[in-house]
Amino acid sequence: MTSPTPPVPLAHVLLHVRDTLATDGRVGELGLEVVAEGDDVVVRGVIATAARQAEIVSVVAEVLAAHGWSCPVRDLTRTPAVASPTTDPEQL
């Protein structure tokens, strides 16, 4: 009789999630924070475009699944404002 392979600890998987968010071309963002909060995996930070932001949950879920994990993913990232500056020049 063989026992099932124990799952990789989630803390290890989160390392790979963060790496993948940087290197997977769908997201391509190095600076995101990925943490476990309760039963959820939460992603925070700033991502340049809404299109990249829209891919975060599925990319994270793929990496989790590849390591035997299935848990809710919450995307708390934001995209930067791109409007013209509204403040006067800084005098230096």
Partner: peptide, 10 residues
């Protein structure tokens, strides 16, 4: 900076 650019006046 939250906008498209910042301006510095030196």
């Amino acid at each position: 900076i939250g906008c498209a650019y910042r301006v510095f006046d030196l």
